[in-house]
Amino acid sequence: MKPVLDVNQLTMDFGGLRALDHIDLQVKPGEIVALIGPNGAGKTTFFNCITGIYSPTKGDMLLTRPEGDSSRLNGLKPNRVTERGMARTFQNIRLFQNMTVLENVMIGRHCRLRSGIPGAILRPPANRREEKQVVDDSYRMLEKIGLARYVNEFAKNLPYGAQRRLEIARALATEPFLLLLDEPAAGMNAQETKELDDLIIRLRAEMGVSILLIEHDMKLVMSLSDRIYVVDYGKKIAEGNPEEIKSNPAVIKAYLGEDIDA
């Protein structure tokens, strides 16, 4: 089967700084793949490039639905990328702080809905049905992620761990087949991390999404991932399954110079 995400020779320069240097990366259908590396290695930049937030200096990015049709991501705006079935979360939480939890998820549904301005003003039956549907669907999504009890809270008033989960719920509401998670466990305690682990496994099983995640928590990475990519200073230094990565000398060297949590 074709990989859902196929990135070739991706390069990104910021002025004189090469943040990504000819990176190749694939995610196959149903896989959980981790992207790891020390701080400043270029992991978030990689996400920003493939989701259309930055325009990369060089490289090819191809997104393929599990059903088979592919589209090139180069030059697409972020919203188009999301429409094509790849959604993400942000490392520095970017929720809509002054909207409620439910509304945050409803925003995720936006690109799957159709009603426009006339519909909003005149509210024909089709529009009312759609609105009711989006409320129900979003609520169900919150139940699935375990946030139902916060439904009418403002996003800014949620505990940290719950905010991270809300980011995931919001991304899932766009109906992706590939989900990108940027340090989903950052700032979580052991209990929350364990729940996150279960959640990610469950998402793949129940919704069939493939997952590409950036994470510093090695325990989580090793337990979740089918395959791991390691980057350092924008270059890919290793790739393989968790066992191979653990024993890879280049990886150990890259991490030795870093703090434990890096």
């Binding site: 002054n98 925003i107 936006h110």
Partner: peptide, 20 residues
């Protein structure tokens, strides 16, 4: 739907685009 999108845009443009 449109009104929610406006408010989301006010809150965070980047996240808004990333949500489609």
């Amino acid at each position: 739907r449109i009104g929610r999108a406006w408010i989301a845009l006010r809150e965070d443009e980047v996240a808004c685009q990333a949500m489609g």
